[in-house]
Simulated scan of single mutants.
Amino acid sequence: MRRTLDFIYRAAGALAAFFILAIVALVAAQVLLNLADKVSAALVGRGIGLTIPSYSDFTGFFLAASSFLALAYTLRAGGHIRVTLLTGRLPESAQRIAEIIVVGIALCMSAYATFYVVLLVEESLVFGDRSSGMVSVPLWIPQLPVAVGLVILTIALADELIGLLRGRKASWDGKGDNLLSE
């Protein structure tokens, strides 16, 4: 089970990286098209109007996808910002209790958000909601990676909570089963 979960977290992280690269490629392509338009305007006195339709919409969709798909991997790799100013001063047993409580609260919040985002995707699909850009995209398409990312985060938080309750160290403290330690 551990290998399967870690594979899911890594796959979601890799997919997030793909979306980041897609943003870079799309923005670079639009910058090059803008440059070609400026060169054309300088040479012949008139731009040729090259543009990628709805590129800003697509980069926004890709940013949301990459952000949410990266959440579980980042949690397991210890990349989330944690405030240890207080917990670092607690005895080890109190730190453990605090971590269990915080992960439990995070799990509840993530499960709540996951439930409603999945409902949003379903609603967008049922009602045929579409984006309002030049390229009208069914909204369930960009919403789906957000929902998948939240589902995987919820699984990762449940995984973390179960591990903490079983006595395992937190994955983010460098002594647990961190994704980057393999």
Rank of each mutant, 00 (worst) to 15 (best):
A113W: 01
I8C: 02
V83T: 11
L107S: 10
T84L: 11
D57A: 13
H80M: 01
T114W: 01
A11E: 03
G167V: 03
T74Q: 15
H80P: 06
V151G: 04
T4A: 06
A12T: 15
F18D: 11
I20K: 09
I162Y: 05
A14D: 12
L165N: 04
I162K: 07
R89L: 13
L180G: 06
A77K: 02
S54P: 01
V44K: 03
A113F: 10
T59C: 13
G45Q: 00
A170M: 04
I141L: 15
E92G: 07
F58V: 02
F19E: 09
V31D: 10
L35T: 13
N178Y: 06
V151N: 06
F58D: 09
F127Y: 09
A14M: 12
I97W: 15
T84A: 10
Y112D: 03
L161M: 05
I100A: 07
R3I: 12
V24S: 07
D129C: 03
L139E: 01
L86I: 15
I97T: 15
L71S: 09
L50I: 00
G47F: 02
W140K: 06
V118W: 11
I97C: 08
L71K: 04
F115A: 01
L43A: 14
L125Q: 09
R46C: 01
G149S: 05
T84G: 12
R76G: 12
L180F: 09
N34R: 12
F18Y: 13
S66R: 08
Y73M: 12
R10D: 11
L32I: 14
V103D: 00
L157A: 01
R76C: 08
V39I: 15
G47V: 04
E99I: 01
G167R: 04
L33D: 01
A72Y: 08
A42F: 14
A17W: 14
I162M: 11
A41C: 03
I97D: 12
E122A: 10
L50H: 01
T4Y: 12
V121H: 00
E92T: 09
T154F: 00
L164F: 04
A70Q: 15
R166E: 10
R130D: 07
D37K: 04
S40T: 08
R89H: 13
A28W: 08
L179W: 07
A158E: 02
P91N: 03
